[in-house]
Amino acid sequence: MNVLRMRAVGRDHGSGAGLVRALRDIDLSVAGGEFVAVMGPSGSGKSTLLTLAGGLDTPTAGQVLVDGDDLGSLGPARLAALRRRRIGYVFQDLNLIPGLTAAENVMLPRELDGVRTRAARREARAALAEVGVGDLADRFPDEMSGGQQQRVAIARALVGDRGLVLTDEPTGALDSQTGDEVMRLLRTRCDAGAACLMVTHDARHAAWADRVVFLRDGALVDGTGARPGPDTLLEAGR
């Protein structure tokens, strides 16, 4: 079942002579349990693709569906709720709130969603433990290393069992060892059933994905194909 589906998606900026086609005719689906990486140089449209997939921007052509819901057909309140409940974001700049502890940062989206403080705290602690920083729950961001902060950001993206994880260069400035640990976490999350879409220019990180697609000048040009599994074998047998 496709958690994310992008159908003939395009995104133009400006018009007339100043028209810039940031993305053209993008068809891309990510199923539950699948990890897809989008690779491309800077300016190829990677980040635009991710903001469209997450409902943070609106396409000028085509449709974006999350769990079958067309984001373009939702009003602002329902779109915001869908973003909060079903989509987790991990960006390069972590956007942790400096005045909140690790646990409070992770709790925040859940509390905004109406989960009671006590339950939200319990979930946050579990999510932090899952990414290996359970002992840092009461620390503030500036009391943690870059790798630890990134884990907290991932815990915040995963809390509440969101089915779609969107991530933009999640290993940013981390060293290769810490970067691998972050990829391992995302991989584990996908293996547990989440759909994950990552944009990156780093081949070593993209290789953690089941499928890698290449973006050039706003269009998908090629891909490594799906990882052979029961589903694809069934498809092939049909």
Binding site: A206, A207, V212, T224
Partner: peptide, 8 residues
């Protein structure tokens, strides 16, 4: 694409 597959 081939190298990425090997890397995967």
């Amino acid at each position: 694409t081939a190298t990425l597959r090997a890397l995967q």
